[in-house]
Amino acid sequence: MNSSLDVLIYAHDGRGLGHVSRSVGIGLALRRLYPRLSVLLVSGCANTAELIGDGALDWIKLPSYRTNVIAGKSSGVMGNSNIDDKLLGELRARNIRDIVDAYRPKVFLADHTPQGKHKELLLSHEVSPETVRVLGIRAVVGDVGKVWSEFSADVFSGTYSNILWYGDSSVAGSAELEHLAAHYGVVPHEAGYVSRLSELGYSGARSSAEKSLAGVISIPWSGEGTAVLMPKLAQALGGVDKSLGNWKIYMDLSKPDAEEVVHNFSSLEHVAFAQVGPQFLHDLSNARSALIYGGYNSLTDVMVCKVPSVVLLRGMKDGEQEEHAAILERKSAAVQNVFSDLDVTVEELRDSLRNCIDAEASEFSIKLDGAAEAARYLAALAGVSDVDCRF
Rank of each mutant, 00 (worst) to 15 (best):
I292G: 13
R350K: 14
L41S: 00
V310K: 14
K255V: 04
D301T: 02
I70S: 14
S208Y: 13
H282N: 05
F156V: 03
S285I: 00
A361G: 03
H324N: 12
Q275T: 13
A236M: 04
Y296G: 01
N80W: 03
G215R: 04
W221A: 13
L88N: 08
K306G: 08
D58Y: 02
H270G: 04
E126G: 12
N297G: 12
A71N: 15
L378G: 00
V344N: 03
A234R: 03
L281H: 11
L244C: 05
W165I: 00
V144D: 01
D257L: 01
V77M: 03
G14M: 00
D84P: 01
G116D: 12
H183Q: 10
G239V: 02
A181M: 07
G225N: 10
E320D: 11
D386P: 03
A371I: 01
A374R: 13
L17M: 01
D241N: 11
C356W: 00
E126V: 05
N82P: 10
P105V: 12
V127Q: 07
A361C: 15
Q235S: 10
A209W: 09
L87C: 11
S74E: 14
K146L: 08
R196H: 09
G295H: 09
N355R: 14
G295M: 10
H270Y: 09
Q235N: 03
A290Q: 02
G173P: 04
E90G: 09
L312D: 01
Q279R: 11
S74H: 04
G79R: 13
G185E: 12
V310W: 02
G294M: 12
V216R: 00
G294Q: 13
L180R: 12
R376E: 02
A272Y: 06
V304T: 11
A380E: 15
L88I: 04
I52F: 00
S298W: 08
P105L: 10
F280W: 13
G238C: 12
R196V: 03
R376P: 00
I137T: 05
G225W: 15
S174I: 10
W247G: 09
M230K: 12
A153L: 08
G201Q: 02
R390Y: 14
L5Y: 05
H282C: 10
E260R: 01
L200S: 08
D6I: 01
L109P: 03
A93R: 09
T226A: 11
P220D: 10
N95C: 13
V271W: 12
W59M: 08
G72M: 00
E178P: 09
L378Q: 06
L281C: 01
A49L: 06
I52D: 06
L233G: 08
V171D: 06
A290T: 10
I99G: 02
H189E: 14
S212P: 10
T226E: 00
V194L: 07
D318E: 15
Q275S: 12
S81E: 08
N246K: 11
Q115A: 12
P35S: 05
R330G: 04
E260V: 07
E348Q: 15
L28M: 15
R22K: 08
D6G: 02
R288Y: 15
V24T: 06
A380G: 15
F391P: 09
N337E: 05
G116I: 00
D388G: 08
H263R: 14
G239W: 06
R22F: 03
P220G: 09
V310N: 08
G201M: 03
K106A: 05
V346P: 01
Y377Q: 02
V171A: 05
G245L: 11
S21A: 07
